[in-house]
Computed example of a mutant assay.
Amino acid sequence: MQFSQYKALLKLSDEALELADRHQIEEYRLRPIVSVAPEYHSEIVRQIIDFNLTAKQVRELCDGDGLETDTEEPLDKLPPAAMKMARAVQASNSTTPQDIARALMRQEGDAAIARARLQALRKLLTEAERYLTED
């Protein structure tokens, strides 16, 4: 059984495996990620790193945070990464820009890459704001 669990981790995306290895994330915290679409693997691993998520929190994140109800249509369900990002936005008052910059530098190891990540985030947030103003 344990060997099967280790073998299942090989289904993680390459980037997710690299991040998990670099940050020495325990396999029991990675197990639930295998059940999520591969395009979300690295984002969930980043959430584990950034927020030091427990195995239970990772499982909840991978199960969709338990926020979906049975009455929702499949198209209305949101990706777990989007829900986690929304929670991070809600917690933005409890962190400083310096903390975010230092965390990005620690995670990426290069200021240029960290800056590129922030620019991508800025673009994503601008588009999200535009979406809200259209409604």
Results as ranks from 00 to 15, higher is better:
121 L>D: 06
88 A>L: 09
89 V>K: 04
87 R>S: 05
52 N>L: 01
19 L>I: 03
107 Q>C: 05
35 S>H: 07
26 E>S: 13
27 E>C: 01
135 D>V: 06
119 Q>E: 11
133 T>C: 08
122 R>W: 13
120 A>G: 03
68 E>S: 13
117 R>A: 03
13 S>V: 12
4 S>M: 15
128 A>G: 08
13 S>H: 01
130 R>I: 09
3 F>D: 13
44 I>C: 07
24 Q>K: 14
74 P>V: 11
23 H>I: 05
18 E>W: 01
133 T>P: 02
26 E>D: 09
109 G>R: 13
88 A>Y: 01
131 Y>L: 15
101 A>N: 08
74 P>N: 15
79 P>G: 06
19 L>E: 02
133 T>E: 14
134 E>Y: 08
34 V>C: 12
61 L>T: 13
70 D>I: 13
97 P>Y: 09
117 R>P: 02
94 S>F: 04
4 S>I: 07
54 T>C: 00
117 R>Y: 04
33 I>C: 03
78 L>I: 14
135 D>R: 12
42 S>P: 01
64 G>Q: 05
98 Q>D: 11
44 I>F: 02
13 S>P: 09
60 E>H: 12
48 I>Y: 01
10 L>Q: 05
32 P>S: 03
66 G>Y: 07
39 E>F: 11
64 G>D: 05
60 E>F: 14
2 Q>P: 06
120 A>C: 10
15 E>C: 08
66 G>A: 13
88 A>P: 05
77 K>P: 00
126 T>G: 02
14 D>A: 02
117 R>K: 11
79 P>D: 11
128 A>L: 15
25 I>V: 15
88 A>M: 12
26 E>K: 15
118 L>V: 09
70 D>Q: 05
119 Q>M: 13
48 I>L: 01
101 A>M: 09
21 D>W: 15
2 Q>I: 13
133 T>S: 07
123 K>C: 07
77 K>I: 06
135 D>K: 12
80 P>V: 04
12 L>F: 03
19 L>K: 05
46 R>I: 04
124 L>M: 02
94 S>I: 02
38 P>D: 07
83 M>T: 04
32 P>R: 03
102 R>G: 02
39 E>L: 08
30 L>Q: 03
66 G>L: 14
107 Q>V: 10
103 A>I: 06
12 L>N: 13
12 L>P: 02
